Computed example of a mutant assay.
Amino acid sequence: MARPTSPLRLALFALYSFYLSLAHAVSSSDAQKPSSEGRGYSLGEPIPVSCLNRTVETGEHITDASGALQYIPFPVCAETSRPLELAFGIESSLNCTIPYISDPFFHLLEFYIHNDAPLTCRIPSKPLPPSVLEQDFRSADETTQEGALGTQSSLYTPLVVALAGTLQLSHLHVGNDLNLLVHARPKSEGPGIVDAATAYSIASHARNARVTIGDELSLHFSVRWYPSTTLPPGWSGYGGHVYKSTFLYCLLSAGASAAICVAYFRGVELPRRLKRYATDRVGRGGGYGLPVANGMSNGYGGYGYGIGTGKKD
């Protein structure tokens, strides 16, 4: 005769079966997801910079037969023998020397400085998946990246370089000292993801580089990273505000002045006054309000203003 099954055992068996079904459903859902949704950058990981390909004649952007924009790597830097790269999260002074200014590139610099066409670049918002890299970089001889209008969806972040300078008949003056600002997405929302970037020349004639065709152009980037899309406050105006350094300077100056005054009074002025007081008492025969030899008191040692010494009998 079969042993009857208790209600408790049936309940435990049903709960166990439900747990197995739930675990199987979760594992199936994970299997259907892509193996990687795109990780963020690690600290110091290189970020390549590519720029919009433009024609030398008019400065217009170049597109392919389907109308997609073409991006080419930033010119090769002599310091690294590679196109310009940023290091995620690393603030530094980055130098990129373009060893040779070709005739086409010289004319493009004219467009950039005259603001006829901007130096439009882009950086990957996060490390690109292998499929995009294989599609973008066709071969070693033709390193052209294609992208949709703009910066190809959310895969890239625009990096427009506002290059300042002046145009001359035979040469250019290029503002080669630039600030490069990059905003990363807050770590709580998406660690290692770039949200915004921009670069601009520091408009100072003393920091311009004179270049002609065949010269080299050394670009100096001051790279700063921000952990959110909000810039921290920094401007406090010209004057009208009390700074900690100013307050400390005033306090130290007041203390030093007081110390000098006390030292002068105790070391010089006080002994001089004591000596004068002693001389007056000895030489004039009496102090303040004391009687003098003629039996009269004038209140100032017998020699007051407008008071005689009296008539002798």
Rank of each mutant, 00 (worst) to 15 (best):
P227F: 05
L252K: 09
I193L: 15
I202M: 11
L274V: 07
H220A: 15
G267F: 10
L252V: 11
G240F: 00
T279R: 13
G301E: 04
Y303I: 10
V211W: 01
H241K: 15
L274Q: 07
N298R: 03
K244P: 07
A258H: 05
E216P: 06
G283W: 02
V262Q: 09
R207L: 10
P191D: 09
L231C: 07
S253G: 13
L217M: 04
G299W: 08
Y238P: 08
N298T: 03
G304S: 09
G214W: 00
S201I: 01
Y200L: 13
A254E: 03
R273T: 05
Y264C: 09
Y243T: 15
H220F: 11
N294W: 12
V223G: 07
G295N: 10
A258E: 00
A259T: 05
A256H: 09
M296C: 05
T279C: 11
G302S: 11
V194K: 09
Y238F: 13
P232H: 14
T212G: 08
A263Y: 13
S201G: 10
M296N: 11
H220I: 15
G299F: 03
V194L: 14
E269Q: 14
V292F: 00
Y238K: 10
G240I: 03
Y303Q: 13
G234K: 07
Y200A: 15
I213G: 04
A197H: 00
P232I: 14
Y226R: 04
V211R: 01
L217K: 00
T230L: 13
T246N: 02
G295T: 13
S218K: 07
I213Q: 02
N294P: 05
G302L: 02
S245C: 12
D215E: 02
F265K: 12
A203M: 08
T279F: 06
S253R: 08
T230D: 14
S228K: 05
H241M: 15
N208H: 01
G287Q: 03
S245L: 10
P191H: 04
T198M: 14
C250A: 12
E269N: 13
G287N: 00
G234C: 12
S204W: 00
T198D: 13
G306H: 01
G255N: 10
F247H: 11
G304F: 06
A203L: 06
G283T: 06
P291E: 01
C261G: 12
